[in-house]
Computed example of a mutant assay.
Amino acid sequence: MASPRGIRLTDQQRVAWLRLIRSENVGPATFRDLLNHFGSAAASIEALPDLAVRSGRRISIAGQAEAEREIAALARLGGRLVAIGEPDYPPWLREIDAPPPLISIRGGSGDLLRQPMIAIVGARSASVAGRKMAQILARGLGEAGFAIASGLARGIDAAAHEAALDGGTVAVFAGGLDRLYPPENAALAEAILERGGAHLSEMPLGWEPRARDFPRRNRLVSGMSVGALVIEAAERSGSLITARLAGEQGRIVFAVPGSPLDPRAAGTNRLIKEGAHLVTTASDVLEVVGPMIGHAFVAPPNWSEPEGEGAQSPGSVVPDDRDRALLIEALGPTPVQVDELIRFTGLRAATVQVLLIELDLAGRIERHPGQRVALIG
């Protein structure tokens, strides 16, 4: 495995990055656009009030003391805040659409977070056979050099984590790292840390997971992995959401077949019909992903800041009302690529970028995979 490389934020930059991503209506895609346009998180924070005014609404900007308290509380928990491009940031996660610029990590000794991973997910109300299958596959993949990523849920997730304790496993939280869910897996969560595994989240400490946070977590589970393996999943289950996200992220989807009489196998059987790789042994997965071990990663561009006190703004573009009206007219409920908007409107790329930031801060656009955006309302 190649030696870890990447950026290292200064303490001052880390606080600014945290303030920016914790500010109202600033998601990962908007964070990236702000950083690209203004050159640094600090410069972006200075620009936010004017951008918000032009968007037609006021937004709450996270304060310096608030960010410093979160970093200190995370350290007391034994965790750390890792920025995209830093050595401990999972390399495959960097490559998804709108990756989280900052993640909170607890544990993760050695090269675990840079190790190739397989996501194993499935039914919470899993059968004994399903749990046993998850353990057999997780153990076999671990022995072959793959870490296991999952969501620490009941059933298949818990079985996979438990079997992967020796080979390495990462539990992704839907809430803050101090908000374990479900509580019944507390002993397993502690065992993961004791055996060199890791807990990971993009949410702030104290954040109680809501229903809509679990799909957001699932995109991290699949995003940090080279492939997603589904074992027992009913139709319309969270595991199928993970499989769909994995496909959108360009990850390989695997599924274990089950009895047509078991509703817990309906989702996995459908995945196989739609092209997922059928799996009955770990070797079925290894034949596909084995060559990916040792894959070299290059840190993506446009996610770093200059050394020193912070970047200087390259000069903010201030669109006029005509530019704004032209872009809004070009947008609609159907997602379109940003490059298409630039070509269609004839506006400068920087102008479109700033206008999309304004619309994002106003809650008027929705981001979609493939650098696509759609107008809301």
Rank of each mutant, 00 (worst) to 15 (best):
R5K: 10
G6Q: 03
D11K: 09
Q12P: 00
R14D: 04
A16R: 13
E24C: 00
V26W: 08
G27V: 07
L35Y: 00
S40N: 01
A43I: 10
I45V: 11
E46W: 05
L51D: 10
R57N: 06
R58C: 04
G63D: 15
E66H: 07
E68I: 02
E70L: 10
A72K: 11
G78I: 07
R80P: 03
L81Y: 04
P87W: 12
R94P: 02
I96M: 12
A98M: 08
S104M: 15
I105A: 05
I105E: 05
V121T: 13
S127H: 09
R131P: 00
M133P: 01
A134T: 05
A138R: 00
A144W: 05
F146N: 08
S150H: 02
G151P: 10
G151D: 04
R154N: 10
G155F: 01
D157W: 04
A159L: 03
E162V: 01
E162L: 11
A164N: 08
A171E: 09
A171D: 05
V172R: 00
V172S: 02
V172F: 08
V172Q: 04
L177Q: 05
D178K: 06
D178S: 02
D178C: 07
Y181Q: 11
P183D: 13
N185D: 01
N185C: 09
L188D: 02
E194S: 14
A198T: 11
S201K: 02
S201N: 08
L205Q: 12
P209E: 09
D213C: 02
L220H: 04
V221G: 03
G223T: 06
V230N: 05
G238T: 01
I241D: 10
A243S: 05
R244M: 09
Q249F: 01
Q249N: 05
T268S: 13
R270C: 01
G275D: 04
A276M: 02
V279G: 03
T281P: 10
V288R: 11
P301S: 15
N302L: 12
E305Q: 12
E307T: 13
V317T: 15
D320V: 03
D320I: 07
R324L: 11
A325S: 15
L331W: 09
P335N: 06
E340Q: 14
L355R: 02
L356C: 11
D360W: 04
R364M: 13
I365R: 00
H368W: 14
I376F: 08
I376M: 15
